[in-house]
C-alpha cells in the first residue's frame, strides 16, 4: 500500500525529535474502513490480510518505528478500535 498523498511532510521533520508511540488495535472492534491506513501521515499501517471475527480486515502496523504518537489514527477511527500511546501514557493508563 502506498504512503498517503494527503498529508505533507513538515519542512523541519528531520530537525525535530518526534515522540515515539505504540499503536494498539482492538481487532474485533474494527470494521475495516481503512481510514487509519489512508490518513496516517507516516504510513505506519496497512490493512492486514487476516479476517477478524466479523470478517473485516483490521489494520496492521508495518512501520512501528515511524509512529510519532500523533493520535490521528485514534481520532479518525470511527470504531474506537485503534489508539496510540507513548510510554508515559502506557504507564498512566495501565491498571
Amino acid at each position: 500500500m502506498p504512503e498517503s498523498n494527503y498529508w505533507r511532510k513538515p519542512f523541519d521533520a528531520d530537525k525535530v525529535k518526534s515522540p515515539d508511540g505504540t499503536v494498539y488495535v482492538i481487532k474485533d472492534r474494527c470494521k475495516g474502513c481503512g481510514f487509519c491506513v489512508e490518513f496516517c501521515p507516516r504510513g505506519v499501517l496497512v490493512l492486514s490480510t487476516e479476517f477478524n471475527r466479523k470478517g473485516y480486515h483490521p489494520p496492521e502496523v508495518i512501520h512501528p518505528d515511524r509512529c510519532v504518537n500523533c493520535d490521528l489514527c485514534e481520532r479518525i477511527c470511527p470504531e474506537f478500535a485503534i489508539y496510540c500511546l507513548n510510554q508515559e501514557e502506557i504507564i498512566e493508563l495501565a491498571p
Binding site: 494498539y24 470494521k31 466479523k54 470511527p78 474506537f80 478500535a81 500511546l85 502506557i90 491498571p95
Partner: peptide, 26 residues
C-alpha cells in the same frame, strides 16, 4: 492499557451499531 477514551465512552457497548466507514464514530 484501556482505550484512552474509555472514561468518556461506554466501551461496554462497543462495537457500536454504526456501519463500517460511517463518520459518526469519528
Amino acid at each position: 492499557p484501556e482505550h484512552p477514551k474509555s472514561l468518556l465512552l461506554r466501551m461496554d457497548r462497543m462495537p457500536h451499531i454504526w456501519c463500517s466507514r460511517c463518520g459518526i464514530g469519528i
